[in-house]
């Protein structure tokens, strides 16, 4: 089983590449989510300000 992961002693390179890919994908999702949260908060604070103003 172990030689399956050894990748013909290129394991370090292959697994680091796939690991990095996973990290980048998660980073994209996290960035998209945090951007969404900030925009939501901006709109909510603006709506509340508008409501209190009316």
């Amino acid at each position: 089983m172990t030689e399956m992961f050894a990748m013909g002693n290129y394991g370090a390179y292959v697994w680091s590449s796939f690991g990095l890919t996973a990290i980048v994908m998660l980073a994209c999702v996290a960035q998209a989510r945090s951007r969404q949260r900030t925009v939501y908060q901006q709109i909510e604070t603006r709506l509340k300000a508008m409501e209190s103003a009316e």
Binding site: C28, A32, R35, Q36, V39, E44
Partner: peptide, 30 residues
């Protein structure tokens, strides 16, 4: 496809931030 999902999600956020004055955004947020 993964890129497409991410892109749509981000574009929805960008649309929201550009249309934050619109009525449909207010109704949705309310």
């Amino acid at each position: 496809f993964f890129f497409g999902a991410l892109l749509l999600a981000r574009v929805r956020t960008e649309v929201l931030s550009r249309e934050h004055r619109a009525r449909w955004v207010r109704n949705m947020m309310m």
